[in-house]
Each structure stands twice: as structure tokens, then as C-alpha cells.
Design a protein around this nucleic acid. Structure first.
Length: 502
RNA sequence: GCUCCCGUAGUCUAGUGGCCAAGGAUAGAAGCCUCUCGAGCUUCUGACACGGGUUCAAAUCCCGUCGGGAGCACCA
């Protein structure tokens, strides 16, 4: 407030508390995550709970990166627990998703110490469910979904709520025995039918589903809901901290409520992070899955899915993804970030490694008149590291340049980079060899057919210099003035590359 | 509407009562360098949502307003 009297304030402070003036400047080290509440080094147990409806995508990154980072930081344990309860019609389980999820996590450098499946633990959930029913705090409700919803809206208790425990227990057995069909009975927790949050009014804990499960088939027809299965498993598995998105905040309250009723003492702490969104991107596993099935996307590594597999394919480094995600910290505010930020992080890592090559999209063949006899020229593999060597570009007087360059520079003097200066036209006229300060464009001679798959799904076709055909698959290179790409496939007929970013 | 959460530059973030006339990253601008529109170097633009309080001192604590978000499924 009193900026003008800063000196006066300092003087006063010196009188009041001189030590405050001498606090050392905080050192600006590498960014660290805030500590986890009550975390004890070596004693932290975290869990990752993917729902296997498809491969993990970039929108899931916050969950697995944070859990992994904290597990490592505290030298704790990270459990990979597939949350494969039966799901819903709209959100079905996908048998191949289990491996796809692991593949993505492995790529991302996530170290999980144990793999568990919810679907293996159903009998345990039954047992605890029965214990809960025995307390009288849960009941089997035969209302249909519509009635249930209406009652919830109007804060009304249904007749089932006041059944006695024995009757409920009998109904529960009947549920397990298969007396009830899908939608005919659920187990509900007595919270409060008039709870201010309607979502909280007597939540469903178990329901009947007759769908087949990809791992356990038709063995079970009664399936627990997320909050109940986690209340049981977080406790039994000794999870110390649940790090989850804040979209799951209500589940904390449910889990806590269940622990209270079952008198469970050992409970994890909850930590939440905000929703991560990408500008101009709407991520949805179920939608990608549908579009892949319809052939509108080419597969789980189609760049348009933003799956971890697709990032891998584009040459995004796992470390870049990790840094990118960690830079958001653990804040509860929702964030919307541009993919460009991830690219900047990745560019830092690949620029030094990526050798340079020429690629011309939409090639226009051009003969050069008056060219002195040359059979090849050399160009550095990387301009910043001359010691890395050179590549050889063969020349026989008929080059190809990009249509965009041709149209832009037609009739003007340009330099075919690392080669010669010409007046660009069809044909082009040779001018001189020496490097002049005029626009440089890329060119190829004896080019190899090359396709660059763009993030939009568009395939940019063109010609690359011959050396590109000798690159190993998985190499990340830069096509000059185009961008960084990862070599995806090399065959006699063509080279295919995936575009990473500029 | 109800419950809960969050508001620092275009975006993301540091900051937990004095070191902050607010630091970093990214994006943007200018220049240098470079046989790429990449990288590198230099410089610049740009923020504490608002209003009250508490205090010698507030981005930081309290209250209110405004704004944004999440959840409100027999999905996870």
C-alpha cells in the first residue's frame, strides 16, 4: 500500500523483526511437486485405475504421470488396477484394451509394480457388500431406474428403504442367484434421501448386468459400482494416497461414508488434480473406438486419436510428455493448454538428434538448363554439428521442387539449397554455384516417394532425397522447412513418415 | 437449480504476510546468427478478476461480488 514509504516500512520492520529482512532468496531449482499429505518415504502405495475401453490418450496423462512421479519420489509402490467392472452399454470393455493400456504406460515410462484386475475381486466385493447390508445401512431396491431418479429428485424414500435387514439379505441372495434381471434390482446405500447434493441421495452400490465380461465371461451378474469397489480395494490393497481427477471428488465422499459404516480404519488420503483439456481437441476413447470400427480412423495409433500409441508413432518423446504434464503441478484448477506447448517441450529434446533431409511435397519436375557437369553435392546432416557428417544428393539436371515454392518464386532467383542458384521456371536457368543471399528452397533429384501422415490424418505426398530410403524405422528426422517427422515404414516402393510438429 | 472446486500475462505456472514496482515456460514482436520458415543468442510486449476489510506491510489472511469449472447415471 505504502510504496512511497517503503524505506520507512523497512525501518520499522527492522525494529520489529529484523530477521525477516534477511531471509535468503529462494533458489530457483527444477520444479518440484508439492509433497503428498502424510507421505512416508518407502511407505507410499498408489494406484492407477484405467478403464479398459481403449488405449490411454493424452487426456489421461495427468493421472498416470502424477501417480508415477509420486511413486518414484517416495520410492513407493504403484499398482496398476484395471477398473474392469462391467461398465455400461455406452462404455463397453474392450478385450484388447488391457494390452493397449499397458503398452502405452510402458512407453510413457510408468513403472507399475503389480497388475490387478477388478474382475478378479468380485467375490471380495460381494463379501463386503453383504457386511454392509448386515449393518442395515444398505438395501436392495426394486424400483426401476425412472422411479429411482424421480424419487431422488423429489427427495422421497421408497418402500424398500425401510425393509428389515433379513428381507434385504434375502433379496441380495436372490440377486446373486439370478432371480432379478438387468435393471430389476440394485443395492443402494442409505445416505440421506434429502441430501443437498441430489447425486448423493442413496447411491447405487451394486447392480445387475447380464453382459459378458471379456475376462470372466458370464461368471457374475451382480457388479459393484466404482465407489463401492474402490472403498473395499483401496482399503484392502493398502493404498495410502488416491491421486485422481477432481471429476471423481464425489467418490471420495462415498468411499469415506462406506469406511465409516464398515469401521475401516486404514484409509488412503485423497488428492485431486483439475481437468486437463487441449485446445481444439475433444478426446473420447469410446468415440475413437467407434470411428476406428467404422473405418474413419485407421487404427489405435491414428494421430487423430491422440492415443499414447499415436504419440509414440509421431516421435513424441515420453520425457517430453512427462515434463509437459508435470509443469501443471497438482493444481485443482482446470486447465486448457495448446498442443504447441507439448511440441515445444519435445522440440527441445529431438532437435539435436534429428538429422536434416529434403522433402518436397507436391513435387513439380523441373529441368535445369546450362548446368555445369556435376553428379552430386553434399549437405550436412545437421547444421549445428558439422562433425556428424554429410549426406550425398545425386544430381543429373532434373530436379523436383515443392509446388508451393515453385508458385511463390516462379521467375525469381532462388538457391537450391546446398546446390546452386537458378532462375526458377520450367525449365529453370542455371545462374551460379556460390552461396548467395537469396531465398533457399529444398529440392530433390532421384527422389524416393514419401508420404507424411499429418496429425489431421491428411497424407502429404511427395519426394524425399534418396538418403531417406536408408533411414531406419523409428528414426526422428527433420524435413527442412516442413517439420520433424518419425520414419514409420520403409519399403522399396515408398517411405512413410509421421509428422510430429514443426 | 443444487453440491463442491478454482480465479497471477494469450496459455501454463512460481509465489503460503515483508526479499514481488511479481519469477519462469510457451506463444507473440524486433534484431543478431545460420546455405531450413529449425535451433541458438539479445532485447521487448504482457498478469495478481473486482470491491471492502485486517495489518506498519496483502498476490498471499477475512468478507462480499463477479467470472470459470466439475459433479448431479443401475459409466468410470
Amino acid at each position: 500500500m505504502n510504496r512511497l514509504e517503503l524505506e520507512a516500512q523497512k525501518a520499522e520492520l527492522a525494529a520489529l523483526a529484523p530477521e525477516l529482512l534477511e531471509r535468503p532468496k529462494a533458489e530457483t531449482g527444477p520444479k518440484e511437486l508439492p509433497p503428498l499429505p502424510d507421505a512416508v518415504e518407502g511407505n507410499v502405495v498408489l494406484r492407477l485405475a484405467p478403464y479398459p475401453s481403449g488405449p490411454l490418450h493424452i487426456g489421461n496423462a495427468r493421472a498416470f504421470v502424477l501417480n508415477d512421479a509420486y511413486a518414484k519420489r517416495y520410492r513407493g509402490k504403484l499398482l496398476l488396477v484395471f477398473d474392469d467392472t462391467i461398465g455400461s452399454e455406452e462404455k463397453p470393455l474392450l478385450p484388447e484394451a488391457f494390452d493397449q493400456v499397458k503398452e502405452g504406460l510402458d512407453w510413457a515410462g510408468v513403472e507399475y509394480h503389480e497388475v490387478l484386475y477388478k474382475s478378479d475381486r468380485i467375490p471380495i466385493h460381494y463379501e463386503w457388500g453383504e457386511r454392509l447390508i448386515a449393518t442395515g445401512e444398505a438395501y436392495v431396491c426394486e424400483c426401476d431406474a425412472e422411479t429411482l431418479r424421480r424419487n431422488r429428485e423429489t427427495a422421497l424414500a421408497c418402500v424398500h428403504r425401510s425393509q428389515d435387514v433379513d428381507e434385504t439379505l434375502a433379496m441380495w441372495k436372490a440377486m446373486l442367484a439370478g432371480t432379478y434381471g438387468e435393471g430389476e434390482a440394485v443395492v443402494r446405500l442409505k445416505t440421506d434421501v434429502a441430501h443437498p447434493n441430489p447425486a448423493f441421495r442413496d447411491r447405487v452400490l451394486f447392480r445387475v448386468a447380464e453382459r459378458e465380461h471379456p475376462r470372466v465371461g458370464a461368471r457374475y451378474r451382480v457388479w459393484p459400482m466404482l465407489e463401492f469397489s474402490w472403498a473395499v480395494d483401496d482399503h484392502l490393497l493398502g493404498v495410502t494416497h488416491v491421486i485422481r481427477g477432481k471429476d471423481l471428488i464425489m467418490e471420495d465422499l462415498m468411499e469415506t461414508r462406506i469406511w465409516d459404516l464398515l469401521e475401516v480404519a486404514r484409509r488412503p488420503r485423497f488428492v485431486h488434480f483439475g481437468i486437463l483439456r487441449f485446445k481444439d481437441l475433444e478426446l473420447s476413447k469410446s468415440r475413437y473406438r467407434r470411428e476406428i470400427a467404422e473405418g474413419r480412423l485407421t487404427g489405435i495409433d491414428d494421430p487423430r486419436t491422440w492415443s499414447l500409441q499415436s504419440l509414440m508413432r509421431r516421435g513424441i518423446r515420453p520425457a517430453a510428455l512427462r515434463e509437459f504434464v508435470l509443469s501443471f503441478g497438482l493444481s485443482q484448477s482446470d486447465i486448457e493448454v495448446a498442443a504447441e506447448t507439448l511440441y515445444a517441450e519435445n522440440r527441445k529434446r529431438i532437435d539435436k538428434d534429428a538429422n536434416r533431409y529434403f522433402f518436397v511435397p507436391e513435387p513439380v519436375p523441373i529441368a535445369i538448363e546450362g548446368l555445369p557437369p556435376v553428379s552430386s553435392v553434399k549437405a550436412p546432416l545437421h547444421p549445428d554439428f558439422p562433425g556428424r557428417g554429410e549426406r550425398t544428393l545425386p544430381v543429373d539436371g532434373k530436379v523436383a521442387v515443392a509446388r508451393a515454392d515453385f508458385e511463390k518464386f516462379r521467375g525469381q532467383e532462388v538457391r537450391l539449397k546446398d546446390f546452386c542458384n537458378v532462375r526458377l521456371d520450367r525449365p529453370a536457368r542455371f545462374l551460379s554455384m556460390e552461396n548467395r543471399d537469396i531465398p533457399k528452397i529444398q529440392w530433390v533429384d532421384h527422389g524416393v516417394t514419401t508420404v507424411v501422415l499429418m496429425p489431421s490424418g491428411f497424407e502429404s505426398r511427395g519426394l524425399a532425397e534418396p538418403a531417406v530410403a536408408d533411414l531406419r524405422v523409428d528414426t526422428v528426422v527433420q524435413f527442412e522447412r516442413v517439420g520433424f517427422v518419425r520414419i514409420d515404414r520403409v519399403s522399396r516402393a515408398e517411405v512413410r513418415a509421421c509428422f510430429a510438429h514443426r
